[in-house]
Structures are given as structure tokens and as C-alpha cells.
Design a protein around this nucleic acid. Structure first.
Lengths: 149, 149
DNA sequence: TTCATTTCGTTCGCTACCATACGATAGTTG
DNA sequence: CAACTATCGTATGGTAGCGAACGAAATGAA
């Protein structure tokens, strides 16, 4: 909403979009040499920090739909970075595990926490707290609206 | 990043994502009976408020890449809601105009401004201002990083 | 005028995301 | 036990979004 559209009345919604996509784009930029997308990176990140996991937990943690996650996992499997094997337990679910190639790739990937620092690091603590509070309540209101309407 | 991932240290980035997707999902929910996506709605909204426009202006206003907008416009043309015709001026650009069907559809669509109101309406003005300021500076820092790195 | 550069839109190939429907397995209740 | 229900993952088909490459048209410089 730039140009002839009024820049002045950009809503918070517009800024959330900008902020989200800017962050994603920055991650994608950094990950491109490794042929990895930002969401793929999050999956690896989760497996590195939580060990072998089932798709259900991964989906809940990253807040992705089952169908979405299925596609992403298929991509990672195709790349040989993770494997799905069913352990002895629930036969519906498959355990996701990093392959040696996946672990090797992870070691080569730079730390992406600088993205968060770059975006919010130099901002006053009180401002940050306010922002989180506002976004949190906004999100919760929207999600309430979504659920029971 | 819920569940066994620590909920407590959810970053602003995580809330931005949630907030953005919650808003989009809510719009999509409302627009589904009309077989319209939220971004498609924004295109119609722009044309209603700005009259026949060229793709360039639309893209800048909605902050969409040319390639992205091309696809969206193709969809809307296929649905018969808008048409592309080249006026006498610059032969590279096409003028986008609502069809009668497009205008008729627009009249049937409910006002979606309530989404913004529901999300941010009841929040203290000072908080809102702070939030916008923080998100704005965060975005600008990220985009600066993206451009020259 | 000619040539180089820029701009506008399209096309292609890809990831991400969701809704829907489906099959298979688990759990529950009669 | 059988039948119902819930859950997990997959497959399909659609929109959204971007990068890269392209042709066409406009613009600027030699």
C-alpha cells in the first residue's frame, strides 16, 4: 500500500505482513546456497534440538498443517536429509530422523539467530514487550473469531 | 513452536507470523462462499477505490512482485471479474478494469474492515502506535540487510 | 538514427500453504 | 467380539509467492 495508496494509514496488519515476509526472505536468502527453504530449515532445526520425532509433534510445534508438513518432509526426504522409519510403536506414525547428510549440512549452515537480533535487537525492551502483547492479543482475538463464529 | 518447544520465549517474529496468518485465514474464511482469496479481494478492493489501473501501480500498492500479480490477475480474468485492455498510451502496460460481474460480486461481499477492528480495535492507541513503530523499524532493518549485504 | 538500458508484463519452475478426501491404524463403547 | 470414532499420514488440486529468463516497448545516449 505504497505510492498513490496512502502510506500514512498503513495498518498493523500491513506491517505484520511486511515484517513476516522480510524475515522469511532474509532467511531464504541466507539458505539459498544450501538449497534450503526457511521452513525446511525449521524442520531440521526442530530435529536437531528435539531428536527423532514424529510428524504430529513437528506439525504442532511449527504450527503447520499435516498436508503442508507432508509436502515439506517429502522434499527433505528426496534431498536425502531426513528419513522416515516406523518404530515399534503406533503404526500410523513414522519417526523422522536426520541422516548423516542432514547432520553434515546442518553443521555447514550459518547461525540464523542474527536475523532476530537484526530485527529486534536494538529496540527498547519496553517497546518490544508492548509489541508482543499487542500482537498476542490481536492474534488471539482473530483465532477466537475463526473458531466459533 | 508450541508443545515441547518452549512457549515462553516466543519471539516477536513468531507472533508476527501468527498474527499475519490468522488475519489472512479469517479473510479467506469469509471469502470462501464467494470463491475468492484474500489477495484477490485486495486486488478488487484496489480497483474499486482507484478505478481502472495498470498492473505496475497495483503491484506497488499491494507490495506484490510482478510475477505474483501476474498469476493473481490471470485467475481473476479467468473468473471473469476483471479484464485487461490496452489503452492508447504505453503499449507495454494493460489497463485493469472491473467487469460487470466483478462489480456485482463486490456488492455482495461483506465489509472486511471488521477484521482489523476485531484484531486491533480495542487496543490502547499508544500501544498500537508503539507496535507499528517497532514493526516498521524491524522491517526496515531486515529489508536493508536484504538489499545490501 | 542506432545502440544500450530500463521498464512492463508473461512464463516457467519451484516452495509453501490449505481444504478435502482417503486409507490405515488406535482407541472406545456396545 | 463388532462397530463406531478419532487420529496419523498421504494424495490431489488449488492459490500465493518468488527468482530467473524472456520479448516487447519505452527511454536515453552516442
Amino acid at each position: 500500500m505504497r505510492d498513490q495508496a496512502d502510506t500514512k494509514d498503513l495498518s498493523v496488519g500491513a506491517w505484520t505482513k511486511r515484517c513476516y515476509f522480510a524475515g522469511r526472505a532474509l532467511m531464504d536468502e541466507r539458505l539459498r546456497p544450501f538449497d534450503l527453504g526457511s521452513t525446511q530449515w525449521y524442520v531440521l532445526w526442530y530435529l536437531v534440538n528435539n531428536g527423532p520425532s514424529v510428524q504430529r509433534d513437528l506439525g504442532r510445534a511449527l504450527e503447520l498443517e499435516r498436508a503442508t508438513l507432508s509436502g515439506i518432509i517429502a522434499t527433505l526426504v528426496r534431498k536425502g536429509l531426513i528419513v522416515q522409519k516406523s518404530d515399534g510403536g503406533d503404526q500410523r506414525q513414522r519417526l523422522l530422523t536426520l541422516t548423516a547428510a542432514g547432520e553434515a549440512l546442518w553443521r555447514r549452515i550459518p547461525d540464523l539467530s542474527f536475523i532476530h537480533d537484526a530485527a529486534f535487537g536494538g529496540i527498547d525492551e519496553a517497546d518490544l514487550a508492548t509489541t508482543i502483547r499487542v500482537l498476542k492479543s490481536a492474534t488471539e482475538r482473530l483465532q477466537t473469531l475463526l473458531r466459533k463464529d
